[in-house]
Amino acid sequence: MNKQESIINKRQKLHAIRVLRDRIFVVGFALAVVVGILGLAALLFDVLIDGLPFLNINFLSSYASRKAENSGILAPLAGTIWIVGMTALLTIPIGVGTAIYLEEFASKNRFNRLIELNIANLAGVPSVIYGLLGLAVFVQFLFNGSRSVTAGALTMTLLILPIVVIASQEAMKAVPSSYRDAAYAMGANRWQVVKAVVLPQALPGMMSGIILALSRAIGESAPILIISSLVWVTFIPTSPDSKFTVLPLQIFTWVSQPQHSFRGIAAAAIIVLLIVLLSMNGIAIWIRSKYQSRPDQ
């Protein structure tokens, strides 16, 4: 009797320890999420505290200056619009075209698998390497040393192309194959099926992928830094041949200044950049959720 009791006691103790360990680790795992969210909150807080005092209409409409108080982001804002506009014009047809070919036209042979593998690898190449590619191929080879908007946009296009291709492929994979079969049964050829059935159905998914890719292009600084290498720009780009700077590059320049006064305007520029990017992300998520849940799919 005594022996049995002690065994039961032991069991109960062990059980209590196991339950306690379970409870402790719940807190531990939850803490990982909390640390992530606190990190985000600290980052936003840090930027807002430093930057809000400098954020006014003059800041948006003046050029960079040697004095922090007089500085503004007109030139980098215009440069960013130029770059993202041209990048969109180049990336969308090429990226969507590549995705259409791989998803709808290519047979699943070894060569086409190799192309898909190649695109997956390109998505993992560090952005600074694209900067080197752009410097050597576009700036020095094609444009004879001119560090132009076009060279920047071409480089950005190559950088975000894999993201657009992969997102567009995902969107097309989600179109049910019965839709395609129905069109083929009516006598449509491959291109007609793509044009009239697959693309309209896949459009929302593609758009959200493209917006996310473009927001990546807006926030990317390393390749532009190598391509442009201009740190004080006091003019708006007027043509694709103009020299330029972009918001992240201007932020980098100000952060690198030894005077602390420039940190405030760097933070103000970060606020502008984050507003643009977060609203783009918001639109992408909205598009995805609006068109995602269709009853018939």
Binding site: L40, L43, V47, E220, L274
Partner: peptide, 21 residues
């Protein structure tokens, strides 16, 4: 989605955060 926001913040902003905070 809150955690995903972390992945969308530009790296230059993280650089600023590291240096100043």
């Amino acid at each position: 989605p809150i955690l995903e926001v972390l992945a969308g913040i530009p790296t230059v902003v993280y650089g600023y955060f590291a240096l100043t905070f």
